Simulated assay, not measured.
Amino acid sequence: MFWYHVVFLALIQGLTEFLPVSSSAHLILPSHILAWPDQGLAFDVAVHVGTLIAVVSYFWSDIFSILKDWVGSLTGSAKTDNSRLGWWVIYASVPAMIAGATLNGLIENNLRSIEVIAYSTIGFGVLLWLSDQFFSKSKKLEDLKLSNVVTIGIVQALALVPGTSRSGITMTAARFMGFDRDSAARFSFLLSIPIILAAGAFKGIELLSGDALHAANWNIIFWGVVLSALSAYLCIHLFLKWLNQIGFLPFMLYRLALGGFLLWLVKVS
């Protein structure tokens, strides 16, 4: 990998992991469009570590409170909004983890084409905008119920399809069920922690079981972690700061433009 490959891919991973635009699609596209070499398993693990560092750092005080009350609920303390939120994050993460463990190979082999990415980018982008426009949304995180959590967890599994966007599909589901933008985004970001951790662990085990770790360029891995962490942290901060002002329309328009460009590429290739 050249230095500009490292910078571009790390920044793209950090920026798109938490925006509703699909990080997996953006990481697949350079090899298809620019004929770049595959970044390799070690680099994939590095940028996952970077985005995990970013989200844990940004929500550290919330995570500490949730963990403290969740552990308390295991030892007989009274249930609180934070302890319930801890359970909700666990419950909502299970469907995606099961789907990832059982369907990952099928998806890797059959659904990573530019055409699939284009249609999922467009379709789920429109759904995101519709969820933001035509439903009453005043519910907060403390209004989450088990039925909401299970629904969000099931639709989160759809993010295995490149172009869907994990953050986008979970926010879409939350908005359809009446949650305000900030609550939908914050729950989506909290859900990213076990999902990124699981994906990173899965890739890490695969890395340790092969020869890729011995051949890894540690300078590239270091900068992959640093750049993805910094860009992801900034992305989370700005997204939450501006979300109520800009809504999801800009993201839908971007997805329509990207999807249309990809379909044009398929047509001319």
Rank of each mutant, 00 (worst) to 15 (best):
G40L: 04
F189T: 00
L9D: 03
D143T: 04
S93F: 08
F248K: 00
S83C: 10
W129E: 09
I246Y: 11
Q156F: 06
Y254P: 03
Y254S: 02
A96P: 08
L106Y: 12
S165A: 04
A101L: 14
L234R: 00
S120F: 14
L160S: 07
L160Q: 06
N217Y: 05
A198F: 02
S188F: 11
S138T: 09
Y254R: 01
K137W: 08
K203N: 05
N110G: 04
K267T: 02
W223F: 15
R175H: 05
G105D: 11
L230Y: 07
F239T: 02
A10N: 09
L253W: 09
F64E: 07
A257E: 04
I117Y: 08
V161P: 13
P250Y: 05
S165W: 05
S269L: 12
N217S: 14
V149Q: 09
G168M: 00
L190N: 03
I63G: 05
F176W: 08
P95H: 08
L249S: 02
Q156G: 10
L141C: 02
K140H: 14
E206C: 01
I221F: 15
K79P: 06
R112P: 05
A229T: 03
A96G: 11
G50M: 12
G153M: 07
S183G: 10
W264V: 11
G260K: 09
V226L: 15
L258S: 08
H48S: 10
C235F: 06
L207R: 04
A173K: 10
V268Y: 10
F2K: 15
L27W: 13
K241W: 08
V116I: 12
L27H: 11
A118P: 05
Y254C: 09
A10H: 09
N217Q: 12
R175S: 13
S22V: 02
V49A: 14
F64W: 14
Y58T: 03
P95W: 12
I195W: 06
L213C: 06
G200W: 03
A229M: 13
I196Q: 09
V149G: 13
G259V: 04
I152C: 12
P250T: 00
S65P: 00
I117H: 10
G50R: 07
I236E: 07
A229F: 15
T172R: 09
L19H: 01
L128R: 05
I195D: 04
F134A: 01
I195C: 08
F189V: 00
V6I: 15
Q133N: 03
F124C: 01
I195V: 15
M171K: 02
F176T: 00
T121K: 06
S73K: 11
W70R: 12
D81W: 07
S65Q: 11
